[in-house]
Design a protein around this nucleic acid. Structure first.
Lengths: 233, 233
DNA sequence: GAGTGGTCTAGACCACGGA
DNA sequence: CCGTGGTCTAGACCACTCA
């Protein structure tokens, strides 16, 4: 099992601090040569490192060392920016698009809507140190929040809903699973199709138990570590 | 991108119900032939399906269709068996080994122990419909629970600690991340080294805030979906 | 013992990124 | 425009599973 040895050799270099976060690895052909093997086998080793969350790939740009993951607490209603700031990370948000549209399958499921409802749909990419780490799709029932799209959407949607519309999140239901980044989602994160991903779905409720909004987050799986602390019943 | 088309063709067959959960796919060479391609490309398609959680592999035995994942709520102090039963799943637990040993690096970190402490270390594999889905390693401070290992360890450790020793879990701290199954962990789950995994670390506290025990769970990533509902502060 | 999956070789072409 | 990563070919050998 040559590819395991290659993987271990690279892990050793990472842990010895010879390779720093976000640093690019040498070209695949060069690495293959230096480990005296073929590209196929070398790529097997790289895929394994990727699955372990130690390196990541930018589509057609190469392989890079993964930075520490962001600690993410689903129990805290913290915005991405606040979370990043508390962990001394440099965060940025980019709005890909924001529009009113007919609820798609996911939106109707998450928001428990009747068919053909109108919703606001917002797609944003979040960056850590200029690396795109998560694509977030927010769905908000349009009747609750007129003119929502007129506001600055790079800020926390949670805070916006609270301050502008008095919609306070009291409860969250979430689901976490693994999958892959495909097509346009992969593109938005500069990832190759098929990159491992962590998918988080959230539905927010107000104090009366009504649904406020929902979100689906596609994370590069190496960029997040979910950590929380809670009381048991 | 031939392998994406192959993947889609197989997905279609799964969703049409032509392939049922736990059913074995044809041999790689046969699949490759029927899609008129080589094994390398075919395996790329299979790996993608695996990463999406739609199929899984048993080491040297072949590829199988993934059953529905088990819904797992970290906020409920439910035992694996109760969880499975509530979802009409057939569960089984196998004790791999249970012993007193010097705390390793992980145990000292999770239990916040001084160096060279004695702990009970229990390794168990949990099955759903005879498929091994998770390897659980439990660490318990030995001084709190004399003779722990004399009891039936196929039952819920949580319940055992509560009923036999009066140790009631009041709080849990957990961490969820993705990684891979390697070496003996992979073997215990009949998986190939490098299989995608969901790793859950848990530390349990009693009502005084003292640590009772800790656990590390290595899940086949397609076998679990983490779902919870909680109040926001 | 036949067939299978796990691993590896030694090439190839293309489209894209970056200079 | 060069070099890169993404994709694909057509084989091979071995160790293991299973009948």
């Amino acid at each position: 099992m040559q590819y395991v040895k290659i993987k271990d050799a690279i892990v050793e270099q990472i842990e010895a601090g010879m390779l720093s976060p976000r640093q690019k690895l040498p070209a695949e052909r060069k690495l293959a040569e230096s480990f005296d093997t073929t590209r196929v086998t070398l790529r097997e080793a790289l895929s394994l490192l990727e699955a372990e969350g130690r390196i990541y790939r930018e589509d057609r740009r190469g392989w890079f060392i993964s930075p520490l993951p962001l600690r993410y607490d689903p129990g805290q209603a913290l915005s991405f920016l606040d979370m990043a700031q508390m962990q001394n990370r440099l965060a940025k948000t980019e709005v890909l698009n924001a529009s009113t549209c007919l609820a798609d399958k996911q939106a109707t499921r998450l928001l428990a809507l009747p068919a053909f409802s109108d919703v606001f749909c917002i797609n944003r990419v979040r960056y850590l140190e200029d690396r795109p780490v998560v694509l977030v799709t927010n769905y908000v029932q349009s009747k609750l929040t007129p003119d929502l799209l007129a506001h600055d959407l790079t800020q926390s949607l949670n805070q916006l809903l609270c301050n502008q519309y008095g919609l306070k999140q009291k409860q969250v239901r979430y689901r976490i699973a693994t999958s892959t980044l495909l097509g346009s989602i992969a593109q938005a994160l500069r990832a190759t199709s098929g990159t491992p991903a962590m998918v988080i779905e959230r539905v927010h409720f107000d104090s009366t138990g009504s649904i406020i909004d929902a979100a689906i987050e596609y994370w590069r799986h190496d960029a997040i570590s979910i950590e929380s602390c809670l009381e048991l019943k």
